[in-house]
Write a protein that binds this DNA or RNA. Structure first.
Lengths: 140, 140
DNA sequence: GTATATGCAAAACTTTTGCATCCTT
DNA sequence: AAGGATGCAAAAGTTTTGCATATAC
């Protein structure tokens, strides 16, 4: 369960919507959730929190570094908790599942490429698209 | 200038809107364009082609493999000609400029990661975000 | 001539914003 | 008490769709 301190450390006032949204992100089995996903869970919990507030809270969380926003599909953004443990993603185009991975050599090579172009890298996004293990097995 | 054969090879009938859009993508100085960007150029050329048609044509081009759709910013998609010559991108968060690059070792490592996870990779997207050389110079 | 493509307007969707009210400190 | 946060509804922005008309082959 989310604590007030988490929010205060992020420079945000403790409010019910913020606690609830953070709590949902922390306890969800699915790590990457859209604003609508979070909102639906709130509805199911009979919380009268508006979708606009969910968007506002998620954006504040992003600015505060609590969550990371992804645009995997392009239509709707998804958010995941920022556990300070950087990783990249594999997205299954069949089931929508997301697998996280990290490859230190790829990270280093990215920095090298940026450096070679005199590009001040601040962030990066690497996503592989394809068919996950489970879906491959099901299809065969 | 775009030719009818390019479209026929892609399995698309030759129509004025398709030729025009392909032509614009080929001749544009800016390689990555949104549907709106293409539409504005058409307006400037006094072509009465609707924005809806631009979207339809670009989507058909994507399905046919003629162009690649990117969701760099998340709000609006941009399209670039698919020259069969894969590359990744650096996006300058200051001026919006896009620099293309390719690093064969990164490509290989991606395939290896996918293989290690028994993930049937079909495509990938790697984008570095930061400050380009020019903007860095301007800021200092 | 027939099937497909287009234009226009309207709809669908995601995300943002204005404003009165409510809550946190 | 004062400033910030929220809810609701409306707006904004992008992309898609329905349908009558026009076009390609």
């Amino acid at each position: 369960m989310a604590h007030s301190e988490d929010l205060r450390q992020a420079g945000l006032k403790t409010t019910l919507p913020r606690l609830k949204v953070l709590s949902i992100l922390e306890s969800s089995k699915v790590r990457h959730m859209s604003a609508e996903d979070v909102y639906k869970i709130l509805l199911g919990e009979d919380e009268s929190i508006g979708l606009a507030t969910v968007y506002r809270v998620l954006t504040q969380f992003e600015d505060a570094g609590l969550v990371i926003r992804h645009n995997f599909e392009g239509d709707r953004a998804v958010f995941e908790l920022n556990d300070e443990d950087h990783h990249d993603h594999m997205v299954c185009v069949s089931c929508g599942g997301v697998i996280e991975f990290i490859d230190q050599r790829i990270e280093e090579l990215q920095d090298k490429v940026a450096h070679d172009h005199d590009f001040g890298i601040q962030d990066h996004s690497l996503t592989l698209y394809g068919i996950c293990k489970k879906c491959k097995a099901r299809a065969s």
